[in-house]
Amino acid sequence: MTHQGEVLLAVNGLKTYFNTDDGVVKSVDGVTFHINKGETLAVVGESGSGKSVTSLSVMRLIPMPPGKIVEGEVLFTGKDGKQKNLVTLPEAEMRKIRGNDISMIFQEPMTSLNPVYTVGDQIAEAVMLHQNKNKKDAMVVATDMLRFVGIPAPEKRVNEYPHQLSGGMRQRVMIAMALSCKPALLIADEPTTALDVTIQAQILDLMRKLQSEVGMSILFITHNLGVVAEMADRVVVMYGGRVVEEGDVVEIFKAPRHPYTMGLLNSIPRPGEYVHVPGQPKGRLEAIPGNVPNPLNLPVGCAFEPRCKFAVPDCSKAVPALEDTGQGHMARCIRWREFDQAQHEVSA
Protein backbone atom coordinates (compact mmCIF):
# COMPACT_ATOMS: atom_id res chain seq x y z
CA MET A 1 0.00 0.00 0.00
CA THR A 2 2.88 2.33 0.71
CA HIS A 3 4.07 4.39 -2.22
CA GLN A 4 7.59 4.72 -0.94
CA GLY A 5 9.04 8.17 -1.15
CA GLU A 6 5.96 9.97 -2.49
CA VAL A 7 5.53 12.69 0.13
CA LEU A 8 1.93 13.74 0.80
CA LEU A 9 2.46 16.13 3.68
CA ALA A 10 5.67 17.81 4.81
CA VAL A 11 5.72 19.90 7.97
CA ASN A 12 8.87 22.01 8.14
CA GLY A 13 10.01 23.96 11.19
CA LEU A 14 6.46 24.59 12.37
CA LYS A 15 6.11 26.93 15.33
CA THR A 16 2.71 27.56 16.86
CA TYR A 17 2.58 29.84 19.88
CA PHE A 18 -0.23 31.04 22.12
CA ASN A 19 -0.32 34.49 23.64
CA THR A 20 -1.69 34.10 27.15
CA ASP A 21 -1.88 36.38 30.16
CA ASP A 22 1.03 34.48 31.66
CA GLY A 23 3.22 34.83 28.59
CA VAL A 24 3.90 33.10 25.29
CA VAL A 25 3.14 29.37 25.31
CA LYS A 26 5.40 27.68 22.76
CA SER A 27 3.13 24.68 22.21
CA VAL A 28 4.81 23.65 18.96
CA ASP A 29 8.37 24.82 18.68
CA GLY A 30 9.99 23.89 15.42
CA VAL A 31 8.37 20.61 14.43
CA THR A 32 9.45 18.84 11.25
CA PHE A 33 8.09 15.57 9.87
CA HIS A 34 6.52 14.19 6.73
CA ILE A 35 3.92 11.62 5.73
CA ASN A 36 4.22 9.50 2.62
CA LYS A 37 1.27 8.58 0.47
CA GLY A 38 -0.71 5.68 1.89
CA GLU A 39 1.29 5.37 5.08
CA THR A 40 0.31 5.80 8.69
CA LEU A 41 2.46 8.09 10.76
CA ALA A 42 1.94 7.99 14.49
CA VAL A 43 2.65 11.01 16.68
CA VAL A 44 3.19 9.95 20.28
CA GLY A 45 3.79 11.85 23.45
CA GLU A 46 2.34 12.57 26.83
CA SER A 47 -0.60 14.90 27.22
CA GLY A 48 0.53 18.49 26.69
CA SER A 49 3.42 17.69 24.37
CA GLY A 50 1.83 19.59 21.47
CA LYS A 51 0.29 16.81 19.39
CA SER A 52 -3.15 18.36 19.04
CA VAL A 53 -1.77 21.81 18.36
CA THR A 54 0.41 20.31 15.61
CA SER A 55 -2.54 18.62 13.93
CA LEU A 56 -4.80 21.65 14.30
CA SER A 57 -2.03 23.79 12.80
CA VAL A 58 -2.00 21.54 9.74
CA MET A 59 -5.76 22.08 9.44
CA ARG A 60 -5.33 25.79 10.28
CA LEU A 61 -7.94 25.39 13.00
CA ILE A 62 -5.90 26.94 15.79
CA PRO A 63 -8.04 29.55 17.55
CA MET A 64 -6.48 32.86 16.48
CA PRO A 65 -6.15 34.76 18.74
CA PRO A 66 -4.71 33.59 21.12
CA GLY A 67 -2.85 31.17 18.83
CA LYS A 68 -0.56 31.98 15.93
CA ILE A 69 1.53 30.00 13.52
CA VAL A 70 4.66 32.09 13.81
CA GLU A 71 7.00 30.15 11.56
CA GLY A 72 7.34 27.18 9.28
CA GLU A 73 5.52 25.64 6.37
CA VAL A 74 3.04 22.84 5.79
CA LEU A 75 3.43 21.52 2.26
CA PHE A 76 0.54 19.40 1.13
CA THR A 77 -0.24 17.78 -2.21
CA GLY A 78 -4.01 17.76 -2.66
CA LYS A 79 -6.21 15.47 -4.71
CA ASP A 80 -5.67 17.88 -7.61
CA GLY A 81 -1.98 16.97 -7.58
CA LYS A 82 -0.81 20.50 -6.79
CA GLN A 83 1.45 21.19 -3.85
CA LYS A 84 0.37 24.03 -1.56
CA ASN A 85 1.73 25.65 1.56
CA LEU A 86 -1.20 25.45 3.94
CA VAL A 87 0.27 28.05 6.30
CA THR A 88 -0.10 30.81 3.72
CA LEU A 89 -3.07 29.50 1.73
CA PRO A 90 -6.04 31.94 1.61
CA GLU A 91 -8.82 30.95 3.98
CA ALA A 92 -11.28 30.24 1.16
CA GLU A 93 -8.81 27.79 -0.43
CA MET A 94 -8.17 26.24 2.95
CA ARG A 95 -11.89 25.58 3.40
CA LYS A 96 -11.90 23.57 0.20
CA ILE A 97 -9.14 21.39 1.62
CA ARG A 98 -10.74 20.80 5.00
CA GLY A 99 -13.08 17.84 4.94
CA ASN A 100 -12.23 17.16 1.31
CA ASP A 101 -8.45 16.59 1.02
CA ILE A 102 -7.72 16.43 4.73
CA SER A 103 -10.27 15.43 7.29
CA MET A 104 -10.10 14.93 10.98
CA ILE A 105 -11.57 12.86 13.78
CA PHE A 106 -11.26 13.75 17.44
CA GLN A 107 -10.81 12.30 20.86
CA GLU A 108 -14.28 13.00 22.21
CA PRO A 109 -16.96 11.24 20.19
CA MET A 110 -19.54 12.26 22.80
CA THR A 111 -19.12 15.97 22.14
CA SER A 112 -17.77 16.07 18.59
CA LEU A 113 -21.15 15.79 16.88
CA ASN A 114 -23.65 18.62 16.89
CA PRO A 115 -26.52 17.58 19.19
CA VAL A 116 -29.26 19.35 17.24
CA TYR A 117 -28.74 17.79 13.80
CA THR A 118 -29.18 14.19 12.69
CA VAL A 119 -26.01 12.25 11.93
CA GLY A 120 -27.19 12.00 8.33
CA ASP A 121 -27.45 15.77 8.08
CA GLN A 122 -23.97 16.17 9.48
CA ILE A 123 -22.40 13.73 7.04
CA ALA A 124 -24.41 15.16 4.16
CA GLU A 125 -23.16 18.64 5.02
CA ALA A 126 -19.61 17.65 4.09
CA VAL A 127 -20.78 15.87 0.94
CA MET A 128 -22.81 18.86 -0.23
CA LEU A 129 -19.93 21.21 0.45
CA HIS A 130 -17.32 19.35 -1.51
CA GLN A 131 -19.08 17.12 -4.03
CA ASN A 132 -21.62 19.42 -5.60
CA LYS A 133 -24.52 17.18 -4.62
CA ASN A 134 -28.04 18.15 -3.59
CA LYS A 135 -29.44 17.24 -0.19
CA LYS A 136 -31.20 14.11 -1.39
CA ASP A 137 -28.15 12.60 -3.08
CA ALA A 138 -25.96 13.62 -0.18
CA MET A 139 -28.23 11.75 2.23
CA VAL A 140 -27.85 8.65 0.05
CA VAL A 141 -24.07 9.03 0.34
CA ALA A 142 -24.46 9.49 4.10
CA THR A 143 -26.40 6.23 4.39
CA ASP A 144 -23.80 4.43 2.28
CA MET A 145 -21.03 5.80 4.47
CA LEU A 146 -22.76 4.61 7.64
CA ARG A 147 -22.99 1.14 6.10
CA PHE A 148 -19.32 1.42 5.04
CA VAL A 149 -18.20 2.02 8.64
CA GLY A 150 -20.20 -0.93 9.88
CA ILE A 151 -23.20 0.74 11.50
CA PRO A 152 -26.17 -1.64 11.54
CA ALA A 153 -29.49 -0.47 10.02
CA PRO A 154 -27.93 2.61 8.38
CA GLU A 155 -31.25 3.63 6.75
CA LYS A 156 -32.67 4.11 10.23
CA ARG A 157 -29.55 5.48 11.92
CA VAL A 158 -29.08 8.17 9.32
CA ASN A 159 -32.11 9.99 10.72
CA GLU A 160 -31.10 9.65 14.35
CA TYR A 161 -29.53 12.26 16.57
CA PRO A 162 -26.12 11.84 18.22
CA HIS A 163 -27.64 11.32 21.68
CA GLN A 164 -29.35 8.19 20.39
CA LEU A 165 -25.98 6.55 19.62
CA SER A 166 -23.31 5.05 21.86
CA GLY A 167 -19.79 6.46 22.03
CA GLY A 168 -18.40 3.80 19.72
CA MET A 169 -21.19 4.39 17.20
CA ARG A 170 -20.58 8.12 17.30
CA GLN A 171 -16.91 7.62 16.57
CA ARG A 172 -17.95 5.48 13.60
CA VAL A 173 -20.18 8.35 12.48
CA MET A 174 -17.20 10.70 12.79
CA ILE A 175 -15.15 8.33 10.65
CA ALA A 176 -17.98 8.08 8.12
CA MET A 177 -18.12 11.86 7.97
CA ALA A 178 -14.35 12.17 7.66
CA LEU A 179 -14.14 9.63 4.85
CA SER A 180 -17.26 10.77 2.98
CA CYS A 181 -15.21 12.84 0.54
CA LYS A 182 -12.38 10.30 0.18
CA PRO A 183 -9.64 12.45 1.69
CA ALA A 184 -5.97 11.97 0.91
CA LEU A 185 -5.12 12.42 4.58
CA LEU A 186 -7.04 11.50 7.71
CA ILE A 187 -5.89 13.10 10.95
CA ALA A 188 -7.02 11.05 13.93
CA ASP A 189 -6.37 12.85 17.21
CA GLU A 190 -6.51 10.17 19.92
CA PRO A 191 -9.60 8.64 18.32
CA THR A 192 -9.90 5.81 20.83
CA THR A 193 -8.67 7.39 24.05
CA ALA A 194 -12.17 8.13 25.32
CA LEU A 195 -13.56 4.68 24.40
CA ASP A 196 -13.48 1.52 26.45
CA VAL A 197 -11.03 -1.20 25.55
CA THR A 198 -13.18 -3.50 23.38
CA ILE A 199 -14.63 -0.58 21.43
CA GLN A 200 -11.08 0.80 21.03
CA ALA A 201 -9.98 -2.39 19.33
CA GLN A 202 -13.02 -2.35 17.03
CA ILE A 203 -12.40 1.24 15.97
CA LEU A 204 -8.70 0.54 15.30
CA ASP A 205 -9.63 -2.53 13.23
CA LEU A 206 -12.11 -0.43 11.30
CA MET A 207 -9.55 2.28 10.60
CA ARG A 208 -7.03 -0.23 9.30
CA LYS A 209 -9.63 -1.87 7.10
CA LEU A 210 -10.88 1.43 5.70
CA GLN A 211 -7.36 2.63 5.05
CA SER A 212 -6.66 -0.38 2.87
CA GLU A 213 -9.91 0.27 0.99
CA VAL A 214 -9.65 4.04 0.59
CA GLY A 215 -5.85 4.19 0.40
CA MET A 216 -5.50 7.41 2.34
CA SER A 217 -2.61 8.36 4.61
CA ILE A 218 -3.26 8.61 8.33
CA LEU A 219 -1.72 10.94 10.86
CA PHE A 220 -2.44 8.98 13.98
CA ILE A 221 -2.07 10.83 17.26
CA THR A 222 -1.93 8.89 20.47
CA HIS A 223 -0.29 8.88 23.87
CA ASN A 224 -0.19 5.09 23.84
CA LEU A 225 2.82 3.47 22.20
CA GLY A 226 1.02 0.11 22.28
CA VAL A 227 -1.48 1.42 19.74
CA VAL A 228 1.38 2.68 17.58
CA ALA A 229 2.70 -0.83 17.11
CA GLU A 230 -0.67 -1.89 15.77
CA MET A 231 -1.38 1.06 13.54
CA ALA A 232 1.65 2.84 12.23
CA ASP A 233 4.49 2.45 9.73
CA ARG A 234 6.56 5.25 11.17
CA VAL A 235 6.43 7.15 14.41
CA VAL A 236 7.27 10.65 15.62
CA VAL A 237 7.80 11.07 19.36
CA MET A 238 7.01 14.54 20.67
CA TYR A 239 8.09 16.11 23.92
CA GLY A 240 7.64 19.72 25.06
CA GLY A 241 6.51 20.90 21.62
CA ARG A 242 9.47 19.35 19.77
CA VAL A 243 10.16 16.13 17.94
CA VAL A 244 12.57 14.09 20.06
CA GLU A 245 12.70 10.93 18.01
CA GLU A 246 11.48 9.79 14.64
CA GLY A 247 11.75 6.63 12.64
CA ASP A 248 10.41 3.31 11.52
CA VAL A 249 8.11 1.70 14.10
CA VAL A 250 9.99 -1.62 14.13
CA GLU A 251 13.31 0.17 14.39
CA ILE A 252 12.19 2.44 17.23
CA PHE A 253 10.66 -0.38 19.22
CA LYS A 254 13.81 -2.41 18.78
CA ALA A 255 16.40 0.30 19.36
CA PRO A 256 15.09 3.57 20.78
CA ARG A 257 17.72 6.31 20.80
CA HIS A 258 16.03 8.79 23.13
CA PRO A 259 15.54 8.20 26.89
CA TYR A 260 11.98 9.56 26.69
CA THR A 261 11.03 6.95 24.08
CA MET A 262 12.68 4.29 26.23
CA GLY A 263 10.53 5.42 29.15
CA LEU A 264 7.40 5.24 27.01
CA LEU A 265 8.35 1.77 25.79
CA ASN A 266 8.97 0.51 29.28
CA SER A 267 5.58 1.69 30.37
CA ILE A 268 3.73 -0.73 28.06
CA PRO A 269 3.71 -4.46 28.84
CA ARG A 270 4.66 -5.62 25.35
CA PRO A 271 3.77 -4.16 21.97
CA GLY A 272 0.46 -5.47 20.74
CA GLU A 273 -0.80 -6.63 24.07
CA TYR A 274 -2.24 -3.38 25.29
CA VAL A 275 -5.85 -4.28 24.43
CA HIS A 276 -5.69 -7.58 26.25
CA VAL A 277 -4.86 -6.21 29.66
CA PRO A 278 -8.14 -5.59 31.39
CA GLY A 279 -8.23 -3.49 34.54
CA GLN A 280 -5.10 -1.56 33.61
CA PRO A 281 -5.28 2.20 33.26
CA LYS A 282 -5.44 3.38 29.67
CA GLY A 283 -2.46 5.70 29.73
CA ARG A 284 0.51 3.84 31.07
CA LEU A 285 2.87 6.75 30.58
CA GLU A 286 2.83 7.71 34.24
CA ALA A 287 5.58 5.17 34.55
CA ILE A 288 8.05 7.94 33.72
CA PRO A 289 8.57 9.86 36.95
CA GLY A 290 7.95 13.59 36.88
CA ASN A 291 5.76 15.82 34.69
CA VAL A 292 5.90 17.35 31.23
CA PRO A 293 7.65 20.71 31.36
CA ASN A 294 5.67 23.91 31.65
CA PRO A 295 5.50 25.22 28.05
CA LEU A 296 5.74 28.77 29.43
CA ASN A 297 9.09 27.98 30.89
CA LEU A 298 10.96 25.28 28.99
CA PRO A 299 14.44 24.32 30.20
CA VAL A 300 17.24 26.06 28.31
CA GLY A 301 18.75 22.77 27.21
CA CYS A 302 17.11 19.40 26.65
CA ALA A 303 13.45 19.65 27.69
CA PHE A 304 13.56 16.13 29.11
CA GLU A 305 16.58 16.81 31.32
CA PRO A 306 14.68 17.20 34.64
CA ARG A 307 13.26 13.69 34.24
CA CYS A 308 16.11 11.98 32.47
CA LYS A 309 18.16 9.42 34.33
CA PHE A 310 20.97 9.71 31.76
CA ALA A 311 21.28 13.47 32.11
CA VAL A 312 24.79 14.95 32.27
CA PRO A 313 25.76 18.62 32.77
CA ASP A 314 26.11 19.16 29.01
CA CYS A 315 22.40 18.36 28.53
CA SER A 316 21.28 21.69 30.01
CA LYS A 317 23.60 23.88 27.89
CA ALA A 318 21.57 24.03 24.69
CA VAL A 319 18.67 22.27 23.03
CA PRO A 320 20.19 19.15 21.47
CA ALA A 321 19.89 18.91 17.68
CA LEU A 322 17.70 16.32 15.99
CA GLU A 323 20.39 14.03 14.59
CA ASP A 324 20.25 11.27 12.02
CA THR A 325 21.22 8.00 13.65
CA GLY A 326 21.01 6.05 10.41
CA GLN A 327 18.25 4.67 8.12
CA GLY A 328 16.05 7.71 8.56
CA HIS A 329 16.03 7.27 12.31
CA MET A 330 16.41 10.62 14.12
CA ALA A 331 16.95 11.43 17.80
CA ARG A 332 17.28 14.65 19.79
CA CYS A 333 19.72 13.54 22.50
CA ILE A 334 23.41 14.25 22.92
CA ARG A 335 24.02 10.70 24.21
CA TRP A 336 22.12 8.77 21.53
CA ARG A 337 25.28 6.97 20.38
CA GLU A 338 25.58 5.33 23.77
CA PHE A 339 22.14 3.77 23.65
CA ASP A 340 22.23 0.54 21.79
CA GLN A 341 19.56 -2.05 22.36
CA ALA A 342 21.46 -3.86 25.10
CA GLN A 343 21.96 -0.77 27.19
CA HIS A 344 18.32 0.18 26.89
CA GLU A 345 17.32 -3.16 28.33
CA VAL A 346 19.96 -3.27 31.02
CA SER A 347 19.94 0.21 32.44
CA ALA A 348 16.48 1.63 31.69
Partner: peptide, 10 residues
Protein backbone atom coordinates in the same frame (compact mmCIF):
# COMPACT_ATOMS: atom_id res chain seq x y z
CA UNK B 1 -15.91 20.25 19.96
CA UNK B 2 -18.75 20.05 17.46
CA UNK B 3 -18.13 23.54 16.12
CA UNK B 4 -14.50 22.52 15.60
CA UNK B 5 -15.82 19.42 13.81
CA UNK B 6 -17.92 21.63 11.55
CA UNK B 7 -14.92 23.80 10.70
CA UNK B 8 -12.86 20.67 10.05
CA UNK B 9 -15.52 19.77 7.47
CA UNK B 10 -14.79 23.00 5.63
Amino acid sequence: DYVRTARAKG
